[in-house]
């Protein structure tokens, strides 16, 4: 057992301090320590995108990220967007409106990637082309929808904002 490491970070808007094992993966930390189960474990090798979260505005795979490296950073998981209690995020609204969710396993990852990309597009004041939207989602696997509805939903987000 190695020495525990203290980390300070912001999770979904709240400051937090934790002591963790240095080799803890971020996805395990989020699900098992923080009990935020919306982030999913899929392939555990960066192929499927189910574990995607946002760190300082950038979407990353939390299965390939050491939890200690969120020290000093701002982390957003699906729970940090809308929930049933608070208003849904535009991305979530459009996913529902376009029927882009079936089993839901890939959904939180897809939403986080789309959220990060939509913020980037908003900052650059641009509406991405359909090909750019597809490219932005290349790190996600969905076995239910056939992707069309997910891409439609994402496009609707970029057009609305």
């Amino acid at each position: 057992m190695y020495n525990m490491v203290e980390i300070n970070f912001i999770i979904n808007g709240s400051k937090m301090t934790k002591r963790i094992k240095p080799s803890t993966l971020l996805v395990d930390f989020i699900r098992d320590d923080l009990k935020l189960k919306g982030t999913k474990v899929g392939c555990m090798e960066g192929e499927c995108g189910a574990c995607t979260i946002i760190i300082d505005g950038t979407a990353i795979n939390s299965c390939m990220y050491l939890a200690i490296n969120i020290n000093g950073k701002n982390v957003t998981t699906i729970e940090g967007l809308g929930t049933v209690e608070k208003p849904l995020d535009l991305v979530q609204e459009k996913m529902i409106a376009h029927g882009a969710i079936q089993c839901g396993f890939c959904t939180s990852g897809v939403v986080m990637t789309t959220k990060a990309f939509s913020e980037k597009c908003k900052n650059e004041d641009k509406i991405p082309t359909r090909d750019e939207v597809k490219k932005s989602l290349e790190g996600h696997l969905c076995r239910c929808t056939g992707y069309i509805k997910i891409i439609d939903a994402a496009e609707a987000v970029y057009k609305k904002q």
């Binding site: 960066g46 995108g49 990353i60 795979n61 390939m64 990220y65 990309f117 490219k135 290349e138 790190g139």
Partner: peptide, 9 residues
């Protein structure tokens, strides 16, 4: 290279 999430890291 791979995907957007991977390229970011």
């Amino acid at each position: 290279v791979a995907s957007g999430q991977i390229r970011a890291s």
